[in-house]
Structures are given as structure tokens and as C-alpha cells.
Design a protein around this nucleic acid. Structure first.
Length: 187
DNA sequence: CTCCAGGACT
DNA sequence: AGTCCAGGAG
């Protein structure tokens, strides 16, 4: 539901959905129309169709979601981001993930000139994400969560709040905008 | 690469 | 009208 859809608009749909379909198997056993119906108003209905197809595929394969990003990636509706997110957040695998928030944070902090809209830009951001991943899966869980929160709450798209940013001392964008003398007092 | 989807906010 | 959003498929 969160693919290209803001959290605030998803929350209510999510709770209603997991109430009606408590497990993936419930989704798999329901007709496609029931899933689409629960999706009404959310838009991007391909996601509902993908979720239903995924549920049936997983159910047919024994009922358990795979934990590895590559295996997740093979399922319908699971792309690079969702594969990384599920591997990290659900299974505590040491996996990188780059969503719109993380892409913005990494670009501003490490590569301001990089264009995230291009394929080369995306690859570069994923490479950065991999390179700064902590050693353990548990630490990576916290690390990934923190990166996303930083992007959602502080390093936001329209107005970034550098004065409240815990990592501004290490940020290339902040360094470029604030003159060196002033940086000592503010950090 | 391009195209896709839908609603909110500027 | 344009931008943005916990992107993915073709």
C-alpha cells in the first residue's frame, strides 16, 4: 500500500485490510475482487492485483515468505525497495533499501550533484546504501529505520530542517550552504 | 529507458 | 499545472 502513497493516507486502509485479511493465506483464498474491493479509494490498483497474485504464489509454495532479497524480488509487486524492506524489517537480514526518503537523504549527505531520477543515479545511491550498512542484521534494521525517519521527519522534500538534523556535521549539502566559520557555532 | 497509477498539497 | 509520495512492470 505504501508504494508511491503517503503513509497518512494508507494507515486507515491498512488497518481495515489486515482486519479483513489477517494473514497472507486469507488473501490467497479470497477472490481477486474481494482484494480489489478492500483497495477501493487507494488507487494504483495494480498493487492489489499483484498482492493477490503474490499471496497465491506464496501459498502454493508452502505459505512462507522468503527472507532473501533476491527471492522476494521474484514475487509479483516486489521490486528492489520492497525486497530490501521486507528482508530488513521483517527478517532482520543485512539488506540495503532505498526508497524516496532514503534516496533524498543519501543524495544530500553524500552526493548532492547526483540525479536520482536516472538509472545511474539510482545505482549509485544503492551502492552508497550498501557501503554504509552496519555489520549485523539487527543493527541494519535500526540503521534503515533511522534513515527513513530522517528523510520523513527532518530531511524532508520541500523544506529540510538542518538545524534539527543529527548528522548535519557530516552532510555535504549542509557544508555547501553554511560558511565554515558559522558552522562551528551551530554544530 | 519509458510508462503506469491516484490522490493531496503547493 | 506541477510536485510528491515507504515503486514496479514492461
Amino acid at each position: 500500500m505504501l508504494q508511491q502513497t503517503q503513509v497518512a493516507r494508507v494507515v486507515d486502509y491498512y488497518h481495515a485490510f489486515v482486519t479483513r485479511f489477517p494473514t497472507l493465506r486469507h488473501v490467497a483464498e479470497a477472490p481477486p475482487s474481494a482484494v480489489t474491493e478492500a483497495w477501493a479509494g487507494l488507487g494504483y490498483y495494480a498493487r492489489a492485483r499483484n498482492l493477490h497474485a503474490l499471496a497465491r504464489e506464496v501459498a502454493a509454495a508452502g505459505g512462507a515468505l522468503p527472507a532473501e532479497p533476491a527471492a522476494l524480488r521474484a514475487l509479483p509487486g516486489i521490486g528492489p525497495y520492497t525486497a530490501g524492506a521486507v528482508a530488513s524489517f521483517a527478517f532482520e537480514r543485512r539488506a540495503a533499501l532505498v526508497d524516496t526518503n532514503v534516496a533524498r537523504v543519501l543524495r544530500r549527505a553524500f552526493a548532492p550533484a547526483l540525479d536520482p531520477k536516472t538509472g545511474a543515479g539510482q545505482r549509485a545511491l544503492w551502492a552508497i546504501a550498501e557501503s554504509i550498512l552496519p555489520r549485523s542484521g539487527r543493527a541494519a534494521w535500526t540503521h534503515n529505520q533511522a534513515l527513513m525517519e530522517l528523510g520523513a521527519l527532518v530531511c524532508t522534500a520541500r523544506a529540510r530542517h538542518c538545524t534539527r538534523c543529527p548528522v548535519r556535521a557530516h552532510c555535504a549539502t549542509f557544508a555547501a550552504e553554511v560558511p565554515l566559520p558559522a558552522r562551528h557555532r551551530s554544530s
